[in-house]
Simulated scan of single mutants.
Amino acid sequence: MKSKVEQPVAVICTFTWIGFICAISFMEAWLKFRAPGVTLPIGLGIGRLVFAALNKVEWVFAVAILISNISIAKKLNINPFYIVAIAILIVQTAWLLPGLDARAVLHIEGKTVPHSYLHLYYAIAEGIKFIALLIFGTKLFKLEKV
């Protein structure tokens, strides 16, 4: 068996996107609060900047993958796992990140913030997006008999 890649740009973008999710959402997000001298307001300020940047980078990857698909396939033929990742990215961009950002601002300003499940929803969404992208990325490799 030999592996073939028809969309190398999509493969690169998908696995780099996965790397960003792992590095930022699964590692940086909680590690920054363990660093000496990082208070909750400072950590939240860093988090606001990092997650806003991550969101923009994710959209670049998503669009690059879409363009790769269209340019190679000459038609729109999108894998359902890519659609799941994009749907989650839309929900994060339109609802979860703005809500989390507003809560972070209130914390930074020293105001009382009511209980919310937004962080939990975001973490679950990241996990599902990670799995969807991993499956999508592996399906970009085609096995051929030699």
Rank of each mutant, 00 (worst) to 15 (best):
R48P: 00
L133V: 15
L89Q: 02
A94P: 07
K2D: 06
N77Q: 06
L49S: 09
L120F: 14
I21P: 03
C13F: 09
A73V: 08
S71M: 15
N69M: 09
T14S: 10
V91Y: 11
L97P: 00
V63R: 06
A85T: 05
I128A: 04
H107S: 12
Y117G: 13
F33Y: 14
K111E: 12
C22F: 06
L97N: 03
H107P: 11
H107A: 12
V38R: 10
F141M: 01
K74T: 04
L140Y: 09
K145Y: 12
A10L: 10
I88Y: 03
K145D: 13
S3N: 08
V38K: 07
V113K: 10
L106P: 01
F51D: 00
E126G: 13
A102H: 09
A23D: 08
V57C: 04
K142T: 03
H115N: 12
A73Y: 13
E58R: 06
G19S: 10
P8V: 12
A87E: 02
Y82K: 08
T138G: 00
T39Y: 04
I88W: 03
F81L: 07
W30T: 14
M1T: 03
K4G: 00
T138P: 00
T14E: 02
G127Q: 02
P114W: 15
F33L: 07
R34V: 04
E144H: 02
T93L: 01
S116I: 14
Q7D: 00
A53L: 11
A104R: 15
K4S: 01
N55Q: 08
V63P: 14
L40P: 10
L89G: 01
A132R: 13
P41A: 08
F15N: 11
L96H: 02
G37W: 04
E58Q: 13
A132S: 13
F20I: 12
A64C: 15
V105P: 02
S25H: 11
S3T: 09
K111A: 14
I124S: 10
Y122D: 12
H119M: 15
L44Q: 09
H119R: 15
A123I: 13
P36V: 04
F51P: 10
K139L: 09
I124W: 07
K74G: 05
I128R: 03
I42L: 08
A52S: 12
S71Q: 15
L120V: 14
L120Q: 14
F20Y: 15
L143A: 09
Y117T: 09
I88S: 03
I12K: 04
A53P: 00
F130A: 05
W95T: 10
V146D: 11
I108A: 07
T39R: 10
I70Q: 08
Q92V: 07
L140K: 05
I135W: 02
I70A: 10
I42K: 03
W17M: 06
S3Y: 05
I70P: 04
L40R: 11
S68M: 05
R48V: 05
P80D: 00
L134H: 06
E126D: 14
I24Q: 12
G127S: 05
E28H: 07
G47I: 06
T112F: 09
L97F: 02
V57D: 01
F141A: 02
T138S: 00
V91K: 11
A53F: 04
F51G: 04
L143M: 08
N77L: 10
F20D: 13
S25M: 04
L66C: 10
M1E: 01
A102F: 07
L54F: 07
I90Q: 06
V60Q: 04
L31W: 06
